[in-house]
Design a protein around this nucleic acid. Structure first.
Lengths: 197, 197
DNA sequence: CCTACCGATCGGTAGG
DNA sequence: CCTACCGATCGGTAGG
């Protein structure tokens, strides 16, 4: 009985988080109200607080879930023994896939993190900054190895990550090419932009 | 006397719009309050309404000012008789320059337009969609001419425009390269990504 | 999980 | 341009 209750609770919480990501993405964190969220979950607003502590907790669950996914992937890429340009391609493909498959949470993490409360805000910014530095270091290694053209590595990171966030518009568009094709197109343009010409 | 009054009013309104862009950029449209805006202008909240009609009016002034700037530039580019790839470069350089020099308004237009009220919302979306179609048509012409590699033109537009929005992160960063250098780096990567390899 | 409710804050108005 | 104020809505709590 206790077991079932726990399972139900966990599942209910997951639904709330998923619906919150969808709502935050659509309206923005501030404009999304807990009453709207409750309605989309199918309960009264007060009932949400049996599963979560606050609205801001929902945001930081989403943001850190996404951030940790990318940090973990970076660990794996750094441990792999392929060339720098191949590491960059692995990173880009992972970003693209996350954005294609799980874009609501990724989008919210990307665009709404400003609304995090301290100390989560500082932690998130630090984690993000560290991730970008590690990404830039890989690009720098590629430049040194001669497989990537001489560019400012932090600028390249910035371009890559923001370009990928454009997949949000792809989700909205009517006549969209399929996800796999999108990935290949983006890789072609972005990796093409890094290579020596 | 009447003349001076009109001039003062116009100038005051411009200050309000500029401060609003700054505040909307920093906190998001919904999270920015009219009381905060009033404070940054140096008046009481109620006094703002002698210059503007509503909070939403501030947002649509900003969004359409930016959108019209880009639409006007597109007219000029289409009228120029250079090659498609050079037209693309002109468009990218203009976007980069706007983002470097006037990024608060451009940023707000990019990220906060969702909060526009009808009929401005639909008008804005239409204008933006039309702009992107014209941009994609130029890329398509470049593909036909053989100067741009065979890619999905709408996807390429998406990548270019979002990559440029990353300049927001550049503004925040401490150890930033200068604006002109940033422009050249971005052009090198983005135009490099479009060309035949 | 719900009903009932609270204090705070919001955009905006009246009136001078 | 200000003081005074309004109705609406917000996130969240008490109590069952």
């Amino acid at each position: 009985m206790g077991r079932i209750q726990v399972e139900n609770k966990a599942s209910r919480k997951d639904v709330i988080i998923q619906k919150a990501a969808s709502l935050f993405k659509e309206k923005g964190y501030q404009a999304a109200s807990m009453r709207e969220l409750a309605e989309s979950v199918g309960v009264e607003a007060a009932s949400l607080y049996n599963h979560i502590h606050s609205k801001t907790e929902l945001l930081h669950i989403i943001c850190f879930h996404v951030a940790n996914t990318f940090t973990d992937h970076m660990d794996a890429v750094e441990a792999s023994k392929v060339s720098a340009i191949e590491q960059v391609e692995q990173l880009l493909r992972f970003h693209i896939k996350r954005m294609v498959q799980d874009y609501e949470q990724v989008y919210v993490s990307d665009r709404e993190w400003k609304h995090l409360a301290e100390p989560y805000l500082s932690n998130f910014q630090n984690q993000r900054r560290t991730y970008r530095k590690r990404f830039a270091a890989i690009i720098q290694a590629g430049i040194k190895a001669g497989s990537i053209k001489k560019i400012d590595a932090p600028t390249a990171v910035l371009i890559m990550l923001h370009a990928i966030s454009g997949i949000e518009s792809w989700h909205r568009s009517k006549a969209k090419i399929n996800g796999k094709e999108l990935e290949e197109q983006m890789i072609s343009i972005l990796i093409g932009g890094l290579k020596q010409s």
